[in-house]
Amino acid sequence: MDQRTKTESHYLFKSCTAGSIYPGIELSTQYVLDALKLNWVNDPRQSSCTGSGVHLGVVPMETNMALNARNLSLAGETDSEIICICPMSYTNLKHCQKLISKDNKLENNYKKIMDEIGLIYDIKPDVYHVSDLFLKHEDEIVEKTCEFSSNIKVATHHGCHYSKFFFKDVSSGTFEHPTVLDEILVSVGFEVVGYDEQFLCCGGGLHRYMADKEYSKNTFKEKFISLAKVKPDFIVTQCPGCTFNIDYLQENVLEELKMENSIPVLNIAELLALLLGAQPETIGLDMHAVDLEPLLKKLGLRRGNK
């Protein structure tokens, strides 16, 4: 277990979707955290938040709460706040935390259960998404960012599970129009372009695609038409699931719409890692469905600070 104890510590909550499809997102996140010299915990004991199962109705709420009581307590044990790579983990952890802590009966029950597995019950750690943390360290990111070409247009998609369930907790902007990514991107020097269907779901992640392809494809198509209209150079996401959907579904949609140009997609961690000096191949950018090479060329990243 990699634990460096200091005043502020972050428990990196890993994502099943990222780890399965874009391991680079996880590596990028680690890269950025290190580049910012932040204390963070990489705890292999963590289990899935079970989100993909919960939101398909195949995992009972009790299991969801039990596993997340454990996950929260693990973070509690390391005295860290949780930073999630995946918004679905963010919502699920927060939801379980809220349900349990607001109900004495549940709280006593999970206290007992944590005791049975030899863990001290402590579900109080704050839960954030990694981009909340990135936004907090915006100035340091700007300071350390490599030089890159100007006049690059970006569109953002924050993901429903970040902004819609705990709609009050969006750390910048509103649930209707979150601007966490927008703020970071503008600070580092991109032009952020808005689009009509900003609020719309991207079509869901891999689990949703497998459950209801019609929903995923149709919803993504709507979203993509709106995105394509404003001609961004690339799209920035903060959810591994959304990244998958926007990345992998593009080829078919382009064909259906008889459109030529695909739009590259980067997760915010991937983009920041690049800007902070990571080599594209070390953060798995070659694993994306939409080729990122032209974008990388256009960015023209030059090593060394701005």
Binding site: S20, I21, S48, L56, V59, L206, H207, A211
Partner: peptide, 26 residues
Amino acid sequence: KNIVEIGEKIRSNLYSKGETITPESY
């Protein structure tokens, strides 16, 4: 049927690896 199939996969992943989605699912 497809939900049952994905469900079984996810539940089994959860039980055997502590994960819902694994690279194989993809």
